[in-house]
Design a protein around this nucleic acid. Structure first.
Ligand code: SF4
Ligand code: SF4
Lengths: 150, 150
DNA sequence: GATAAATCAGACATTTTTTATCCTATTTAT
DNA sequence: ATAAATAGGATAAAAAATGTCTGATTTATC
């Protein structure tokens, strides 16, 4: 029940590219060094991000990656699911037929809600909001903090 | 990013025990057969549930498992975390020192909120509510459904 | 055009996690 | 005593995650 390292690397890569700005070309080596990602592994991850249409990969001398989607349209969910596939949390979400109980199972419904909630939270996190310096509390800080003391 | 099969089996086992009622002894074989769980594997999982204080294991002829906690105090979160450990979603939740960015990282904060939200959802799901027959919409059906159409 | 610097993409290797099963010991009702 | 049941450590098999290697390809520059 944890994020894969590959997805975390993808997020870091996109943080760097978002800071550079849409369309700005950045070398793979630079990103790997600055964000503590094994360079070859980053190559593999970048392939997935490119296939998902999030970045463009440039070959040759002075090659590298460039952001295709503007940071304010790019979400954590997009980046993570580009790498690990759609989030389902429980197998019976993806294959309801794998468990005969699914049509009447209330646990199934809980997972459904949990999944929607999680994906919604990740969808709301745009990269433009993630790369801004953290000066003060965000507007919805209260609703977030309220979760800490239930 | 998916629940382990062991945790799903644990949930099913506890569903069965909750239906039987607190303190009622049920044979391991019975549970395994009724809930489609490999019996030996169920034995391993039961050890974890017992260590967490959720069930009691009785040896000998006519042995089996019995629920220690009343179903209305037993939550999905308790059962799942008894098996897979506390949910953290991202490694930097458990070990903030694993990433030097954690003190200022806004992604970190998103994961913190997502984690709290998920655990809260699972904490609200008591087994007494999970085993009731599903006749009509629950009181909070609207808030749940609203997530489906964001 | 040749060269060199960069990435691509498939195959391969290693490690970790998950999912069990085996087998002997122990417990307990009869 | 016997037999039915679970305990618990060891082990095995499978799957997933995490990288790395290598030859091919692309492209700026000389
Ligand atoms: S028992 Fe319910 S939650 Fe578990 S796999 Fe079946 S449908 Fe899904
Ligand atoms: S970059 Fe942020 S989210 Fe990723 S590991 Fe570091 S602190 Fe956690």
């Amino acid at each position: 029940m944890r994020l894969s390292r590959a997805a975390e690397y993808a997020v870091r890569c996109m943080l760097y590219l978002s800071t550079a700005g849409k369309g700005v070309l950045v070398g793979r080596r630079t990103i790997a060094r600055e964000m503590d990602i094994p360079e070859q592994f980053l190559g593999k991850i970048a392939q997935q991000l490119a296939r998902a249409g999030l970045i463009e990969i440039i070959q040759g001398v002075k090659g590298g990656f460039r952001l295709v989607v503007p940071p304010d349209e790019l979400t954590l969910l997009m980046v993570i699911e580009a790498v690990i596939g759609e989030i389902f949390l429980n197998d019976c979400m993806l294959w309801p037929e794998s468990c005969g109980r699914s049509p009447v199972c209330k646990v199934h419904v809980v997972w459904e809600n949990a999944r929607n909630q999680l994906r919604e939270t990740l969808r709301k996190a745009t990269f433009s909001s993630l790369i801004t310096e953290s000066p003060v509390l965000s507007p919805d800080a209260h609703s977030s903090l309220s979760l800490l003391n239930p």
